[in-house]
Design a protein around this nucleic acid. Structure first.
Lengths: 134, 134
DNA sequence: TCTTGACCTTCCAGTTACTGGAATTCCTAT
DNA sequence: ATAGGAATTCCAGTAACTGGAAGGTCAAGA
């Protein structure tokens, strides 16, 4: 199977597949013409990687997941620990974004958004104004 | 004011401040010894940048925000549009993460996480199994 | 047979926003 | 004089690709 077909089958761009070979995630065979020749197992691995990446696992985590996948004697606890760590990371990201979102939404709501220069958003970014005390 | 003091005042690492000069966000003066000499306005700009970055605006958005900030004739509508676009981006990110989170949490819940190799997480990543039809 | 076009190959550079580190200079204090 | 702590510049690396150039391969059509 050539890289174009594999790209179509796995949903990954050919560029990405070459990159994954570069960093040692897969090792497709080569034909006499120098073209990569993908076995079914390669395609399977790429689909696995595509799915893991789409769930937000990093490349290094994917590498670990793949080796766990191929280890018939793995402990599911190892996989679960990895997934749980990732889950916590996602939760932290969501919490951080929700925080930003709240602040930003409030600023946006307070900005009238017309032709005048007066703007609570910029005021906020500029920081506390030196209060003109009477 | 020297870069170390400014770093302390703005909360930005000195490295980052130099980087911001590199990409043209600020233009501090130079002393005879070659050291950067920051005016109050520079420090103010850096604080502005730090705040904008902490709200998740990209560097290029910060550049625009800064120029809007310095334009006394700006329309607040321009600022609001930028902030709203950012808000939508944050919402999309949150939605995407929430989706991931849901899938991942379910997989984690289904994985017993013990010493046995059987693992729903890996099963999911591996994709649909060829059903052994009787 | 030749040519066209769609593939494939490699390699280099660019993306975002810094961060680390090396080599060097400067200032201050003892 | 010397030691230390800052300041300077420049180069490289991070994550995970992506774009593009230059060139080789292959199947089909005139």
């Amino acid at each position: 199977m050539k890289i174009g077909d594999v790209a179509e089958a796995s949903g990954l761009p050919a560029k990405t597949i070459r990159y994954y070979e570069d960093i040692g995630l897969i090792r497709p065979a080569r034909g006499t013409n120098g073209y990569r020749d993908f076995a079914a197992s390669d395609v399977h691995k790429l689909a696995f990687l595509a799915r893991a990446r789409s769930l937000g696992f990093s490349i290094e985590e994917c590498r670990t997941l793949l080796s766990l996948y191929e280890d018939r004697d793995r402990a599911s606890a190892d996989v679960k620990a990895l997934a749980e760590a990732h889950l916590r990371r996602i939760d932290r990201k969501i919490a951080a974004l929700a925080g930003l979102r709240g602040t930003l939404a409030e600023l946006v709501a307070r900005c009238h958004g017309d032709a005048r220069p007066d703007c609570p958003i910029l005021d906020d970014l500029a920081g506390p104004k030196p209060a003109a005390d009477a």
